[in-house]
Design a protein around this nucleic acid. Structure first.
Lengths: 129, 129
DNA sequence: AATTATTGATTACAGATGTAATCTAAAAGA
DNA sequence: TCTTTTAGATTACATCTGTAATCAATAATT
């Protein structure tokens, strides 16, 4: 599937944004380096993606001499939350529990994952009593 | 964002597939009718999408006279689970708990949602003790 | 039987996406 | 200073996607 929200971010663009979220501001060559670990992309390709992200107002930059220092204009958490809304709505009629159940059905949940879920629920219940 | 798994299903294609999952087998005109409630698509458009889904081997069909009766070749649950794996991995480093927390942060979880989560957890713990 | 409507097949066409190559100006090196 | 490298800007190009229109065969109508 795939489509999503406001500034539509493509898959390849997301990979670029992801390493920028990790640490910024960052130059394009540093982005290329970070991506090299995972993606066999030509630096021209990465530069194209950076340009598209800037045009989409997902990234901002400042010039330092001849280079650009890129930084995200959207927080990772907010982006993830918005995508999650969309995802849960489309695939699970807006219900998270079935998502979690289906998830557990494919990947093996660890005890820690479950404990985290329990902790979350407990916190939620304390707040909403 | 968006990309996903094996038979890449686009957003518009997913809308078509979704109503077919609801009930099948189904003719193209019935698909058009079901979609009309939500999407203002021309029937030619829907037919194009049906053809693409067949080519991608997401839908199968049988001929009845001159018409086709379409049916899904992939189960909704399995598709949803695979997409979920992918989604959780990319946006939440493979951890569901943060997804749930972020989800609750945007949409309001109902008590029922939380109860469902608790029920799931309890079942999980009974099985994995 | 002739005409019209319907169904699927083929074709269309602009914008998005993946993946670069080329061009241009500036910086770095010889 | 002349040459080479590098950074970003512009251009390229095939495929995918959204959104149909046209064509050909068949079924339904008049």
């Amino acid at each position: 599937m795939a489509p999503s929200l406001k500034p539509e971010i493509s898959s390849a663009e997301f990979d670029v944004l992801d390493v920028i979220w990790d640490d910024h501001p960052v130059t394009s060559s540093e982005v290329v380096n970070r991506l090299n670990e995972r993606k066999p992309w030509h630096d021209k390709t990465v530069k194209t993606l950076l340009g598209r992200l800037v045009k989409k107002q997902v990234l901002g930059f400042e010039k330092r001499q001849r280079q650009y220092l890129y930084h995200p204009l959207i927080a990772r958490e907010l982006y993830a939350e918005k995508e999650t809304q969309h995802f849960v709505k489309r695939l699970f009629k807006g219900k998270v529990a079935p998502l979690v159940a289906g998830f557990a059905n494919q990947s093996n949940l660890s005890k820690q994952d479950v404990d985290e879920l329990k902790a979350f629920i407990e916190a939620w219940e304390n707040k909403h009593d």
